[in-house]
Design a protein around this nucleic acid. Structure first.
Length: 425
RNA sequence: GCCGAGGUGGGGUAGCCUGGUUAGCCCUCAGGGCUGUGGACCCUGCGGCGCGAGUUCGAAUCUCGCCCUCGGCCCCA
């Protein structure tokens, strides 16, 4: 029944020329940021063993993975994200590389979500991962590079939401890791009741109360100092808060105009985070377009040396859909120059003219279906071409070409050099 | 996963309530009027009722199921 359906699987999109162009523009910007910050791009397989993501991906993502058996019965998964693969890489093949390592990726990811605007079952992420430093400047580097990507794309109305999982985890210092994960997962899903009901069974009443008050604290940078007094009895939590404070200080020192909200009750779906976490949002858009944080334990978990790390993953597909909605990227269906050959003998001459244009760097689409000139003109205008180059027996005889300005509706006949002058090439 | 609204040629739409011959229109595409400027105009053509069952003499239209799309919730990039 479903064997022959000429559609893409649900939630997985074909990218049509214009959509692809917008996506490519975003990828170009991300790669430019890689270059400016010294990130080396790597590629990992779309398929990984299930175990890679079972350990630390978090309940939410685990339920939304495409899992299947290969013909030999191995459990494989379509990657729901890439950070785990990067950590695997650093734990194995790159284990002898000098730290810090700066790695970037552009990769398609898969999650079995209910498709909706900005949420696809197949989507592209671009990431930056900085491994080998626990210094706050490395956290800030990720934040600043994230800012740059959005600025370079011409997106202005964005803001950062920043938190630190070390604070809540610090309060639950003595609590089993799995229980911590569950509590944070509840908080992430805005299920405060469930979170604190579970916490109540594992921490002192005083700690519980502090946790509850923390999760309500969000706002400007000032709330960090407010929280500071609250946390005096919990050394680890207090240190985490101080770490967050330092990161914010440095970030603001670089860019005073940055919009950000500090949220001390902020948790993310991924369980591997150990420190600063953040998301990047756009005004009037409910989704986040970039997210990341510090994950100091992941490389070690995959059998590598203990390696502190921080990174982010940028939602290329979401940004693409946002830019398409805003129509901010101009797209031309056809090159701005179309060349038509008329008459039976000028075909070779016409292609030589096209060659000459291209060697000057101009993109030229040749009318290869030999339509009537009026049809070529109409077609070229419909597709947004600016110039029509006409070559036929007359032009060939005098070694000239005719160029018609399709916008001004003027035209000019002359030698190639004269025409290049006319076009200011 | 839950809730809501919808699916008519490649794109956009009318028709559906009130079942009835060839499903209309706009754009695009192809060909011609017209062997090089006719970006116009005119003519012609290709191509469609999401899928499946039911009701009926007869279904785009009514009923049921499924699929898909778009919104909202939840969550995430």
């Amino acid at each position: 029944m479903c064997g022959l359906r000429f559609e893409t699987p649900r939630g997985m999109d074909d990218l049509l020329p214009e959509e692809f162009a917008v996506k490519q523009r975003i990828v170009d910007v991300i790669r430019e940021v890689y270059r400016l910050y010294g990130y080396e791009e790597v590629e990992t397989p779309t398929l990984e063993y299930l175990e890679l993501f079972e350990a630390k991906s978090g309940e939410e993502i685990r339920h939304r993975m495409f899992v299947f058996n290969d013909p030999h019965g191995r459990k494989l998964v379509l990657r729901p994200e890439v950070t785990a693969s990067i950590a695997r890489l650093v734990a194995s093949k790159l284990s002898r590389k000098a730290l810090p390592l700066r790695l970037g990726y552009i990769a398609d990811c898969y999650r079995y979500d209910e498709p909706q605007w900005g949420r696809r079952r197949r989507f592209w992420q671009g990431g930056l991962e900085l491994l080998g430093s626990r210094d706050p400047t490395s956290d800030v580097e990720i934040l600043v590079a994230s800012r740059d990507v959005f600025n370079k794309l011409g997106i202005r109305d964005y803001s950062f939401k920043i938190g630190h999982v070390g604070i809540l985890r610090g309060l639950m210092d003595k609590v089993d890791q799995k229980i911590q994960d569950s509590i944070l997962s509840y908080i992430d899903r805005k299920m405060q009741k469930e979170a604190f009901a579970l916490a109540e069974q594992h921490v002192e009443p005083e700690t519980l109360e502090t946790m509850q008050r923390l999760t309500e604290m969000k706002g400007s940078r000032e709330i960090v100092s407010k929280a500071s007094d609250l946390l005096t009895p919990w050394e680890k939590a207090r240190q985490s808060l101080e770490n967050l404070s330092t990161i914010l200080d440095i970030f603001f020192e670089i860019d005073q105009d940055i919009h950000l909200e500090v949220d001390l009750g902020f948790a993310r779906g991924l369980e591997y985070y150990t420190g600063m976490i953040f998301e990047q949002k756009i005004v009037d858009e409910p989704l986040s377009f970039n997210g990341g944080g510090r994950y100091d334990g992941l490389v070690e978990l995959f059998g590598g040396q203990p390696t502190p790390a921080v990174g982010c993953s940028i939602g290329i597909t979401r940004i693409q859909m946002f830019l398409m909605k805003k129509k901010t990227v101009e797209y031309l269906e056809t090159p701005s120059v179309v060349l038509a050959v008329v008459g039976g003998r000028a075909a070779g001459y016409g292609l030589r003219v096209a060659d000459a244009f291209r060697s000057r760097g101009a993109a030229v689409a040749v009318d290869v279906v030999r339509r009537r000139l009026s049809d070529v003109i109409e077609n070229a205008v419909n597709k947004g071409a600016k110039y029509l180059v006409i070559v036929g027996d007359n032009e060939m005889k005098d070694n000239k070409v005719t160029v018609r300005d399709l916008v001004a509706k003027t035209q000019f006949t002359g030698t190639l050099e004269e025409v290049f002058g006319f076009l200011k090439m």
